[in-house]
Write a protein that binds this DNA or RNA. Structure first.
Length: 664
DNA sequence: CTTAGGG
DNA sequence: CCCTAAG
């Protein structure tokens, strides 16, 4: 709790101002803490009623919304009004849910249940000292509803929904402001991810879409509960719920909040904790496999974390708990909407909530880890991204806008980072794994570009490039990188999100691509790894050029000689195919050059005759036999070095034969 | 793209 | 090795 709170210092202040029981929340069990954080915006009155968030809170929300959608003014006003009016009175009727939520704190529940629940809740509120509990109870249910409304509204509403809607939304949020805000953010994110198209034009986004979405959300939420079996759960006693909970999640729960339990169970039932992933699964799985927790975060993390980060920036408190709650909400909503994605998230969230601490803790680290990765990745990607910018094109911009609201730079950054993480995460992970990548730079930029365009994993490429760049510190512009990191991250997102629109092929293949990239990368790395030491050669210009010096092994030389003997000189490509198929790093040019060197060496050596190879280069002693052979071949092909050739060839030829026989 | 030659 | 010109 504390830790969380610390993060959200601003929030605390708010709470205090409101007269909230933040302290109380802290007093309450740790688990609860999370809830308080989540619900910070709402205050519990002495009578047990929930007081809407204060103006400040509203403001925060507003920012949140703004960040997400970039529209706030309306929301803010509405929110304030609502807050003032109070939970019960205000919004109530305009939106059934909202009204319910306000008065009873249960927005989501069906009417029938609602009444029962309301009573229960009210009782609880009054009885329960721990405001936390109340919050939780109220919050959890509300979250979903609020979330739904808020979400739809936030994302879509801003543009089109009437002020009323906004108001309602805010109302709900007030009670569960944090969650709602987060949800909205998440939701929007999700939506974006889900449908790239929208992302591209966030601000413009069709107005209509907004309202419909909201409607859907509302409708969905009831369904959700019903489906989940919440209704059934309603009838159960807490003890029963506990049992159910245990059965569902395999663990005990200390939570006494009925709503919470119901919710949890419902979620558990709905999404079996399995977390089977669907579309996102691929990415997530990958992530999971590699980063375990990260995987979750990626999917969830993107959304949730991003929201959190924003919240923090805004001054909202986002505690781990809040995250989890958010996550849940998101999950639910998503589940309804997206289904697959939500499922994954749900699993994670569920777990998190279940074990606020364990899960959270794990999660946090993960997040950081992800961020770090993302950063690194971003850097890596940056170069590539830039180069491949063409691909992203508009997509970049649009996603960008979506991601980063006009308001807070830091916040934006954070958000972006998160997103990047998600995107980058997947991409990054692979890169990281194969990080080594030391193959020679193909053909400079051109080759890289080609690669990218070809459809190879951009990420992989970027990573590779980035790596290479890193190796040569002087060349890369750190400053540039840093600056670009953001862009890169942004770009990345676009790639995923925007790509579909722009290049369907890409979008379709995005997931595949990632996998491919990884595979490719790994392959490359493995091949390249064998390698050599990469040395940087200072260039006159000041840039450092990587010299891929791969020492020629005796085997290679022998192969080369053999190849030359077979194909003759000048047919390097053929020789490469025949004898160097397994040596990807040796190009026909390399063969040619090597041969040239061998020739030179052989003839140079020959004269002294005695000294031979041993004397020449201790480092890579070339067997005399080979030199002889080279000479022979040279002779055969009439490639006799100007001076030395003729005179010595005869003798050489003899020796060569011997040598050769030995080899053969 | 491959080859040939210079750096 | 890299780079470039030329077929």
């Amino acid at each position: 709790m504390e830790t969380v709170v610390g993060v959200e210092g601003s929030d605390e202040g708010k709470c205090e101002e409101s007269g909230v029981e933040k302290s109380s929340s802290s007093l309450s069990s740790p688990k609860q803490i999370a809830d308080p954080v989540v619900y910070k915006l709402v205050r519990v009155e002495g009578d047990g009623r929930l007081v809407p968030a204060t103006d400040d809170e509203v403001m925060e929300v507003e920012e949140f919304l703004v960040d997400e959608k970039i529209e706030l003014p309306v929301v803010t006003d509405a929110g304030n009004v609502e807050c003032i009016s109070n939970e019960e009175s205000s919004s109530g009727k305009s939106h059934k849910e909202s009204s319910e939520g306000l008065s009873h704190s249960e927005n989501t529940e069906p009417d029938a249940k609602l009444s029962a629940r309301l009573e229960y809740i009210e009782e609880m509120l009054q009885k329960v000292k721990q405001e936390e509990k109340l919050r939780l109870a109220c919050g959890s249910p509300d979250h979903s509803s609020a979330f739904m409304n808020v979400d739809s509204q936030c994302s879509d509403q801003h543009d089109k929904l009437p002020a009323i809607d906004k108001k309602l939304q805010f109302e709900i949020p007030l009670q569960e402001i944090v969650p709602s805000s987060d949800l909205s953010l998440d939701d929007s994110h999700i939506n974006e991810s889900a449908r790239i198209g929208e992302c591209s034009k966030p601000p413009d986004g069709p107005i209509e879409s907004g309202s419909p979405a909201s409607v859907i959300c509302n409708s969905s939420k009831p369904d959700f509960y019903t489906l989940k079996g919440e209704i059934c759960l309603d009838n159960l006693s807490i003890r029963e719920l506990h049992g159910l909970f245990r059965a569902t999640f395999g663990r005990e729960t200390t939570v006494k909040d009925k709503l919470w339990l119901k919710r949890r169970i419902a979620m558990g039932l709905t999404n079996s904790c399995d977390v089977s992933t669907t579309t996102f699964t691929i990415l997530d799985n990958k992530l999971v496999n590699k980063g375990t927790d990260n995987s979750f975060q990626n999917a969830d993390g993107m959304l949730t974390e991003g929201s959190d980060g924003e919240a923090k920036n805004l001054g909202y408190e986002t505690s781990p708990t809040s995250h989890s709650s958010q996550m849940e909400n998101h999950q639910i909503v998503l589940g309804k909407r997206l289904g697959n994605l939500s499922v994954e998230l749900d699993c994670g969230s569920d777990d998190l909530q279940m074990e606020h601490r364990g899960a959270k803790r794990v999660r946090k680290p993960t997040k950081r880890y992800i961020e770090e990765l993302s950063e690194v990745e971003s850097r890596d990607y940056t170069p590539k991204v830039i180069s491949s910018a063409k691909n992203t094109g508009q997509g970049q911009t649009s996603p960008k806008y979506c991601i980063r609201p006009p308001g807070n730079a830091p916040l934006n950054e954070r958000t972006i980072v998160t997103r990047l993480d998600s995107l980058g995460g997947s991409g990054v992970q692979v890169p990281f794994v194969s990080r080594v990548r030391r193959s020679r730079p193909r053909k400079n930029i051109m080759a890289l570009m080609k690669f990218d365009s070809s459809g190879m994993g951009v990420a992989a490429k970027l990573v590779q490039e980035a790596l290479s760049v890193r190796s040569s510190p002087p060349e890369s512009e750190h400053a540039d990188k840093v600056l670009k990191v953001r862009s890169a991250s942004e770009q990345i997102q676009p790639l995923f999100a925007a790509e579909p629109e722009k290049d369907k092929r890409r979008s379709v293949m995005s997931t595949i691509e990632l996998g491919k990239n990884l595979g490719l990368k790994q392959t490359d790395s493995s091949e390249d790894n064998s390698d050599d030491g990469i040395a940087t050669v200072p260039t006159a210009k000041g840039g450092m050029r990587r010299k891929h010096h791969r020492a020629w092994t005796l085997v290679e030389v022998m192969k080369l000689v053999e190849g030359v003997s077979k194909c003759g000189t000048g047919r390097w490509s053929e020789i490469k195919r025949l004898s160097f198929a397994s040596y990807s790093y040796r190009t026909s040019v390399d063969l040619k050059d090597k041969w040239r060197n061998l020739l030179k060496a052989s003839f140079a050596q020959t004269p002294p005759d005695d000294g031979i190879n041993s004397r020449k280069h201790a480092s890579v002693p070339i067997p005399a036999a080979i030199l002889l052979k080279v000479r022979e071949l040279a002779e055969m092909h009439a490639q006799v070095p100007p001076n030395l050739g003729p005179g010595k060839l005869p003798s050489v030829s003899r020796s060569v034969h011997q040598t050769r026989s030995g080899y053969l």
